[in-house]
């Protein structure tokens, strides 16, 4: 991997920054590589569009900003609309399936998960972003799964580790099932 760019977008309060921090921390601290994370700073508050970017590399990240992401994580329709055009032609969209209905180029791939619904089923809608994080991890395989788990454990408030890990695994399992269904040779329904 020479350089991979990721943008995470959603509305304020959905945990955009936490997702980005965990991915960056996993890659930079636990996998021993380099990741520069920048959160967008603007007149943003709970409920309005919000985003953060990650530039990930094997070597020092010299240019910290993201111009053409390889992966767009979209947790709100507004965020997707705002950033879809900068996604690489071979880019991947990972999205909240009940909130975002992405139309992508034929060369791009899109994977959806009802992360809010799954988080509700776990008893705390707040962990929606962590379900999404588990989903992102298994879909993109950008960062070793164990590094992700380590980073997540370090990034959540004490006492919430178990719930967060459960949410993460829920997202991961959903992705693996989805990938198996889409895998070549999988039974068509």
């Amino acid at each position: 991997m020479d350089r991979t760019e990721v943008r995470v977008t959603g509305y304020g309060g959905q945990g955009v920054v936490l997702i980005s921090t965990v991915i960056g921390r996993a890659w930079a601290v636990h996998a021993g590589k380099h990741a520069a994370m920048i959160q967008s700073f603007g007149p943003e508050a709970r409920g309005s569009a919000c985003s953060a970017t990650l530039a990930m590399s094997e070597t020092e990240v010299l240019y910290p900003y993201v111009r053409h992401p390889d992966v767009l994580v979209a947790m709100s329709a507004e965020g997707f609309e705002l950033y879809k055009d900068e996604l690489k032609d071979e880019g991947v969209v990972v999205y909240e399936a009940n909130l975002v209905h992405p139309v992508v180029k034929p060369t791009q791939r899109a994977y959806g998960i009802p992360s809010t619904q799954l988080a509700e089923a776990l008893g705390r809608v707040l962990v929606q972003n962590v379900v999404m994080l588990g989903f992102f991890s298994a879909i993109t395989k950008l960062v070793p799964m164990e590094a992700m788990r380590e980073a997540l454990r370090h990034s959540v408030p004490a006492g919430t580790e178990e719930l967060n890990m459960k949410a993460f695994e829920k997202g991961r399992e959903y992705a693996e099932k989805l990938l198996a269904e889409h895998a070549p040779g999988a039974a068509k329904t």
Partner: peptide, 9 residues
């Protein structure tokens, strides 16, 4: 600002 708001190891 860039260094100030950039998160790294």
């Amino acid at each position: 600002e860039c260094v100030g708001h950039m998160t790294e190891k």
